[in-house]
Structures are given as structure tokens and as C-alpha cells.
Design a binder for these strands. Structure first.
Lengths: 239, 239
DNA sequence: CCCACTTCGGGAACACTGTTCGCGAACACT
DNA sequence: AGTGTTCGCGAACAGTGTTCCCGAAGTGGG
């Protein structure tokens, strides 16, 4: 018998010794820690230390580290500012994606978490409801809409992850906070081998493609919105 | 100063005591272990035990657990059977996606890994080369093609992850191997809270959508190929 | 007022984890 | 036989998530 989801577990009755902290406080502390030093810093002892308590006490509010991570996801999802779902669906969905990307850049640990654990808490449900409201007049079958929601989330998270990874490469400067937040990986990872493969030859199209890349620092926010719009149009037809 | 990528590190010279194992053997053992009991089972001691050696010996072949995970990804990517890139690009790309999904269902730990670490080893480079070859005559800018490659990977992995998660839910039967391979998460996760949110009301579009879902067990392979084709068409224009 | 009863806090312990050190063994070459 | 270099790996270290269990801190009943 496994546990009920985190979000509908017993909340404190009036009886017994009153709790000195709350699940929200624990979640908030975990998020601060993750923003500061990355997901690896979110250890039970670490979070407890930041709250000035013992590690074992956390298990009064959270049934384990996994639960805490789920709570972190949904807590950040509270940051969406969802306007009333009016107007055509495409701009509405792109706006959702824009906000999602912003949240992920603000919390560099989020993409990895969202991609890995397909959980929906209260705020996630609100978000899904909003997306479905935007698509209310769309003729596609409900299953197609859910697929679109899933693909949209995956695309956004993957895009943000790449952006964050790219920010690690410059030697110093703006990427420092991000580098601190994702300390596990060495710098310059993804293409480290790419360069060697090109030099070794045998991959003509690859060399051609990389040579033809304009190193102009395009606004990656614009790129993202363009990609997302294209993907959604492909899935749900032209607006 | 961080390390050079795993794939171009010093291989054994003829001098000194000969190695009793190889990087390939270590990688293979790790993959077997992951196929059997999930990623959590891939611990240094675990892998070493399966090879009948001590844990510390592995560090002669691999510079750490992270390297090992990277090697696992690329080793599985050796399983692609890439036909000569002829014909229109859309079917070619969908075929690549088809194979990717098959590999991920055969190795349930792969999606999570691919989504989380954007690494490209030798076989990953070959795959990218193949995709670019398929798109050689396509007029899009190289950067757009790389974006399409990335989105394609993310979509495929996310789709496979959802499929694997869904396979956990039935009480018994075919999902057992998968359940063993991803033991960390409780069963029936993603929608566990969804049901409650619906019952509580306040999410009309959600309830409507879930009610309108046909529970027909559609061939999810077909669904995947359809989604992928739509996404790619959206990104790269109609074939 | 005191005594159940229930809940919370958290030190200590357990079973692990990844990783490093250092030493002895095993080979090739001179 | 000696030297240089590599490999194998037991032991140790610092850290992890989680459970036990006991004392503290409250509330409600007699």
C-alpha cells in the first residue's frame, strides 16, 4: 500500500503538541537552498539546518525527500499569472510557455525536476485547467489536447535546460549563479566531444552545419517562442 | 580545470600491469544492472560486484559515476540501425524517432538520463550526422535543424517516460519488469491528485476533458509517431 | 488540578552512497 | 635482476535518506 499524494495528507488537528513549522516553510527553505546551490544542496540535513531544526523533524511535514521535491515543483507553479483565458489559443499558449521559461530561468533546478517527475499538484492542475480553457473551442479530441500540454511542457523544460547549460560555458560573469546552482557538471560539456568528432572527419553534414551557424547572440527568448509556436501549430493546426 | 570528455581519454598503453577489464565491460555491466533494477541499482559497488571486483577498481576505467552514466547513454545509442539517408526527410526522421522510442522502452532508465544530461558521445554524433544528412536538402538554417533535433529528442524521451509511467499502474502483469526498473516512485502517481481535484470541482474544462477521453487502449506507438510527425512538420514545414 | 492522550522535536543509529589514499602485485623493458 | 609504470582494491572518509525512540509540549476529560 503506497501513500496518498502529498497534497491531501492529514493537516494538523488541534490536539497534541503544536507544530513549530509548516509544510510551506519547509518547502520554501528547500527552494531557497536549491536556488542558491542547486538541487544537490537540498538534503534533509541541509534544509533542516536552514530552518534551525533537526533533520528528523522534517519527516513530520514531508514523508521523504521525494515528496519535498514534488512540493517544490508545485510551489513554483504558483508563480504563474494566468490571465482570463480569452482570445485565440495560440498566443495564450505561447504566453504560458513564456512564463514557464521565465520561472525555469529563475529556478535553474526546475527543468530537470519537471522533466523527470511527471507530477501534478494543485497549481499544476490550475495550469492544466487554464490551458484546456484556452483550447475549449478547439475541435481536437481531449486526448490530443493533453498530448499538446505534455509536449509543450517537455519542450519548454528541455529548451530552458539547454539555455542554462549554455550559460555555464563563458569563463566568468553572468553565468556564475547558474554555475553555482548546477555544480555537478563540468563546463563546456555537450559539445566537448563534438569538436573532436568534427576534427576527426567523417561527419560532413555536421561540419557544414556547425560552420554555417551564425554566432550572432540571438535573443534566445525570441527563439524559444518561435519554436514553441511552431510545435503547437504542428500539433493543433494553424490558429 | 575540468576533465576532457570520457570518450577521448587515454587508452591503455602496452606498459605496466595489464588491465583485467575494459571500459566497455564496465559500461555493459552497468547497463545490465540498470535494465534489471533501475538506475538506483547502478552504484559503484553494485557494478563492481557484478564484475567480481572491488569498487575502487572501477575508477581505473571511469572517472566517476557521472562518466559511467554518460557512457551508458552513448552505448545504447549504438543500437540505432541507420539506413542510408535517402528519400524525403519526414519519414526518415520519424523512423529515427521510432527506433529511439524502442530503445527507451527496452531500457526504461534511458529517457530520464537523456532528458537530464545533454551529452553527445560518438554514437550520438553519428545519429546527429544522420539526421542532418536527411535534412541536407532542406532549406532551413542549420540552427533550425539543430533545434529540431533537440525538440525531437526531448519529445521522444518525454513520451517514453509517460508510457513507462503508465505501465506502472496496472496491478500486475506486464508492467512488472518496468516497475522493478523504476522502483522509486509510487504507483499511480501523476493522476493521483487529479482525481481529487476533479471531485472537488472548480475545474470544469478538466472534468470535461477527462470525461471525453476514450479509454480505448490505442496503440501508443501509432500515437507517438503521429505526434512526432506533427511536431516536426510544425518546425520544419510540410514535407 | 491532574492525568491520560496525542502530537511534535530531534539525537542517535543504520545502511548506504561516491570517492580518495596508498600499498602490493603484475607486467614490459633494459 | 632491477626499474618504471600500471592495475587491483581493502580501508577509510564524509556524506546521504530514513527509522527508532524518548522526552517535551500541548489539549481535553475527570
Amino acid at each position: 500500500m503506497d501513500q496518498a499524494p502529498v497534497w491531501l495528507r492529514r493537516r494538523s488537528t488541534g490536539v497534541g503538541r503544536p507544530a513549530e513549522r509548516s509544510q510551506e516553510e519547509v518547502t520554501a527553505a528547500a527552494i531557497e537552498l536549491a536556488d542558491l546551490d542547486g538541487l544537490v544542496a537540498v538534503s534533509m540535513r541541509g534544509v533542516a539546518g536552514r530552518l534551525g531544526t533537526g533533520a528528523a523533524s522534517l519527516y513530520r511535514y514531508v514523508s521523504g525527500r521525494d515528496d519535498l521535491l514534488d512540493l517544490m515543483i508545485d510551489e513554483v507553479a504558483a508563480g504563474y499569472e494566468l490571465p482570463p483565458p480569452t482570445g485565440p489559443w495560440l498566443p495564450g499558449l505561447v504566453e504560458v510557455g513564456r512564463q514557464a521559461r521565465a520561472l525555469m530561468l529563475r529556478h535553474p533546478w526546475l527543468p530537470e525536476l519537471v522533466l523527470t517527475r511527471p507530477v501534478i499538484g494543485p497549481h499544476g492542475v490550475d495550469l492544466l485547467e487554464h490551458v484546456l480553457a484556452l483550447l475549449a473551442d478547439h475541435p481536437a479530441a481531449p486526448a490530443r489536447k493533453l498530448e499538446a500540454f505534455a509536449v509543450m511542457n517537455a519542450t519548454t523544460a528541455a529548451f530552458a535546460l539547454n539555455e542554462l547549460g549554455a550559460a555555464e560555458r563563458p569563463a566568468h560573469g553572468a553565468g556564475d549563479a547558474v554555475r553555482a546552482a548546477r555544480p555537478a557538471r563540468a563546463a563546456g560539456r555537450p559539445d566537448a566531444y563534438l569538436a573532436h568528432a568534427m576534427a576527426a572527419g567523417g561527419h560532413p553534414h555536421l561540419t557544414a552545419a556547425l560552420a554555417g551557424m551564425t554566432p550572432t547572440a540571438v535573443n534566445s527568448g525570441d527563439r524559444f517562442e518561435s519554436v514553441l509556436a511552431d510545435v503547437l501549430t504542428g500539433l493543433l493546426g494553424p490558429a
